[in-house]
């Protein structure tokens, strides 16, 4: 069997490899190359050294301020999404009537596209804020909390499903042993359950981290950076740089490369950190 599998190894891996190369590796290499060029389209790049990178970090480009906003957003989003999703998962693994219905309902927002969600929430939040004589784009704090709210609403269901799967895998004999030993509910939660679902926590924090960092659709539809770029996240800033002025596509590209390195770095650190806390059953 092993031998046969080895023989067909290439046949099985080839389609995926081809697709991966076409959709990811080639564009990525091209993208890195173009970040050192001035270009309009992908095949008329003229090499111009690191000037794109210098421009990317110049004060007028807004890259650092959008990065600051993104970091603020990411921290709050990760914490709130994971705590709420975990809480819901705990509730829905208790024996309550209709858990399946609730699970479906909470999961559903995740099936709606980001742009649609952004516009829907814009309408809803404005409906409330207009009652108080203001609107979503009047202050950056409105946009900030609007984004947090939206992101929570969208991501909680998905993370909840992952946590539920994790919780269902916690061996009942461990929980029973804890109860017999006289552990309180809180003790069981922190000393038994959470260490046992650490793999789920790793996945969920990674997903929320990378999704929050790369957030674009929702940001564009909800505030588009208003007021005055104060709610502009990095992905939106990159697109605005790319199309915002003639001859700046290379600068946008350079920002994208920096952004990739940053997200990959933070993601890897987070994986290393949470992996260490995982225990074997």
């Amino acid at each position: 069997m092993q031998k046969t599998l080895k023989k067909y190894f290439l046949v099985f891996i080839l389609p995926t490899l081809l697709a991966f190369a076409m959709a990811f590796i080639i564009p990525f290499i091209l993208g890195v190359y173009l970040s050192f060029c001035e270009f309009t389209t992908v095949d008329n790049g003229k090499f111009n050294g690191i000037s794109n990178y210098i421009n990317a970090f110049s004060s007028g480009s807004g890259f650092l301020s959008s990065l600051g906003f993104t970091v603020k957003f990411v921290i709050v989003a990760i914490v709130s999404i994971n705590i709420l999703a975990f809480g819901l998962a705990l509730l829905l693994t208790k024996k309550i009537k209709g858990t399946n219905v609730f699970r479906t309902v909470f999961f559903m927002p995740n099936l709606i596209g980001g742009i649609v969600l952004g516009y829907t929430w814009q309408q809803m939040l404005n409906a409330v804020l207009l009652q108080h004589g203001t609107n979503l784009l009047a202050k950056s704090t409105f946009g900030y909390w609007g984004l947090i709210l939206l992101m929570n609403w969208q991501m909680i269901g998905y993370m909840m499903i992952i946590y539920i799967a994790g919780l269902q895998n916690v061996p009942t004999d461990l929980l029973e042993a804890a109860r017999i030993d006289g552990a309180t509910g809180t003790q069981t939660l922190f000393k038994v359950t959470i260490p046992m679902v650490m793999p789920s926590i790793t996945i969920c924090t990674f997903l929320t981290l990378s999704n929050s960092f790369k957030l674009y659709d929702q940001n564009l539809a909800l505030t588009a950076g208003a007021p005055s770029h104060q709610t502009e996240m990095v992905a939106l800033n990159i697109v605005n740089t790319f199309y915002g002025r003639t001859g700046y596509s290379g600068v946008g590209q350079a920002k994208a490369v920096v952004f990739f390195i940053l997200v990959a770095g933070v993601g890897l650190l987070q994986l290393l950190f949470t992996r260490k806390r995982e225990v074997d059953q």
């Binding site: 203001t134 202050k139 005055s228 770029h229 740089t241 199309y243 915002g244 002025r245």
Partner: peptide, 22 residues
């Protein structure tokens, strides 16, 4: 007009003016 970025920022500023923050 120099660029789309200029126009966008002008638009943002007008929005802020109407919202009373500029």
């Amino acid at each position: 007009f120099p660029s789309q970025a200029f126009k966008d920022d002008f638009g943002f500023a007008l929005g802020d003016y109407c919202n009373g923050s500029k």
